[in-house]
Amino acid sequence: MRAAVALIGIGAVGLVVEGALASFVPALLLPDLALSFAMAAALFLPGAAALFSLAGVGFASDLLAGAPLGLHVLSLLVPFAIARIANGSLELRRGVPEAVLAAILSPVQAAGFILLLGLYGAPPEMGFWPGFAIVVRTVANAALAPPVCALVEALAAATGELDPTRRGVAWVGSAAWPALRRHG
């Protein structure tokens, strides 16, 4: 869990710095740090520690963005699951695959976010601006993903918590089945 705690600390510092920069740079040009950290945690940390990191960075992101507490966490769960499952069978721990994965997860998270905002009662009107924002942010997220992943990998290696790679796809049902069968 040490890596997860350190990751939350680094993520929070990153979000604070990003918040200061947002006074001078348009928000849509800034990458979504929470997504990058959640994806990196899914790729490099053991399951529980990765989820803990997601929760910490997600809630910090909500607090600094003025979003309803829990919105970022909820929107990050699906990208997290995709990254986790994909990492089970694909070799994603390299710069280009990490960037590609971030580029895929970015619009997925944005779509989830828009859906949640709609359920929350403040749906954005879909048009040029939200679409443009999603495209620009996708590029920014893809660019940021490799350095964040390298950082998280170094952190996990330093604390001895690096998750073994390519575990093989383990669905909920398949994971539970052998144990259920043994118990009759």
């Binding site: 918040g19 928000a27 600094l64 963005a65 003025g66 979003a67 976010f113």
Partner: peptide, 9 residues
């Protein structure tokens, strides 16, 4: 002293 970094808020 700071603005939110999300384009949605």
């Amino acid at each position: 002293v700071g603005q939110d970094v999300s384009p949605w808020f």
